[in-house]
Design a protein around this nucleic acid. Structure first.
Lengths: 236, 236
DNA sequence: ATCCGTCTGTACGTTAACGTACAGTGCGCC
DNA sequence: GGCGCACTGTACGTTAACGTACAGACGGAT
């Protein structure tokens, strides 16, 4: 699957933010992996073997309900990491990790990651702050899911995803979107149809193109901006 | 407001779990306060001055949407703490903290708390694990709010609250419940009416009595048990 | 060029909420 | 003892979703 217009930075912001010495040591402990679209990084209850730092990939955090995966509650791209539980001293994943956008990521095994964590105050600080952001996002998403109309939620989702895909074209079907947002496929068709009618996006058979980012922001709920503001404020 | 049948332990489980030496030092740094029902402990954006460890009080964490408080996303009683952001090195509260159940709490100022955190590995470990639990709860709540019927959500809420109130009688109006669950008051009246018709609860003018805990669990969604299971698994 | 499977569109009836309005009802207070 | 207020009950019409079913449309493979 080719991804045109892609201008991924091939770096992860959490790692970039480390002081040079820590960063070099950290990177030395990482391996480069390629995550495939739809790949499942972990299931709830699984032992966490690796932490992932997406560079041009991104991973959905999906909350299970009544036994099976149901609702995306957070999205992790090159601004974040997957596997924060390890930072908190728990090696069991609480959520599904589903690769939303295929691409590269850096990863590190659990044991060396813990060691790094002990050795680098900067790393610990960065991780902590990121966890704060993630928690804020979870709370935001809970409220958003409750109160905002599907069309606005969809717009938000597209913006969040585009930010992490570094690409105007998203390879996503309505079916998949429905799954992420916890609604029927038909609901997505309707909402997406409306966004398309307003010339904010365009789509055909699994490819959604963002045409008007500003318009999309206007159509989305404030949650998109709120999340972004929190990230910027906390992570600097 | 008298609270009959109340058998509060007057301790906080996070603090109790500390090794004796750490615990004694920690307690020495705490002051005892009385939280009044409906008191606002903090607003999002506020600087966090204290962390709170409820003993027989409990505090709702309410997520703001579009500017004002809207939806309860977590509940903190004697099993937890309020102000986890400080553990993550951020001194700005992300959520509203609203006292749901009046009563006693231990609290500590931010600066000494940070000092304790540096001195006690056990404290840090406990805090970390509690944050993991809280994140799991946030994700759970997001999905729950999306998928489960109001009656089930209400049942869950009553159970969660009773666990933290140590009392069969909860001082709560429909109005307030509606606010917490993000629905209309009328919706609560209907759902609560149904629970009462099934003899699971009883209520009159701001006092809800739990009659049949098991029945209530059966009427609630699995989220109640899921939360509890996570806590038990992670906190031991 | 045709087939087939995937993706999207449309079309029902159904439902659990919504907003709003107003009527009872019990408790506390003067 | 009765007044007032807070709390609860009921009663509309409205709506944004729901479940299900099936029809069109595009694209890659044979």
């Amino acid at each position: 699957m080719p991804t045109p217009n892609k201008r991924a930075p091939h770096t992860n912001r959490l790692i970039e933010a480390l002081p040079r010495k820590d960063r070099q040591r950290f990177l030395a402990g990482c391996e480069s992996v390629d995550l495939a679209f739809n790949e499942i990084v972990c299931e709830p209850g699984d032992r966490i073997r690796h932490v992932y730092f997406p560079t041009d990939s991104f991973i959905s955090q999906v909350s299970p309900v009544d036994g099976h995966a149901k609702l995306e509650v957070a999205l992790v791209g090159n601004e974040g990491m997957h596997g924060v539980a390890l930072v908190l001293g728990v090696d069991v994943a609480p959520l599904h990790g589903l690769v939303q956008g295929g691409g590269a990521a850096l990863r590190m095994k659990a044991a060396p990651f813990r060691r790094e964590l002990n050795q680098s105050a900067a790393l610990q600080r960065g991780m902590h702050r990121y966890i704060y952001v993630l928690m804020s996002q979870l709370a935001q998403t809970a409220a958003c899911t409750r109160f905002h109309l599907l069309e606005a939620r969809l717009a938000r989702w597209l913006l969040m995803t585009q930010d992490r895909a570094f690409c105007d074209e998203l390879h996503i079907t309505h079916e998949f979107l429905a799954y992420m947002l916890g609604v029927r496929r038909v609901g997505i068709t309707k909402a997406a149809g409306s966004l398309q009618a307003h010339k904010l996006i365009n789509y055909t058979r699994g490819i959604i193109t963002v045409l008007d980012r500003d318009g999309l922001e206007a159509a989305s709920c404030g949650c998109y901006r709120a999340d972004k503001a929190t990230y910027d404020r906390v992570m600097n």
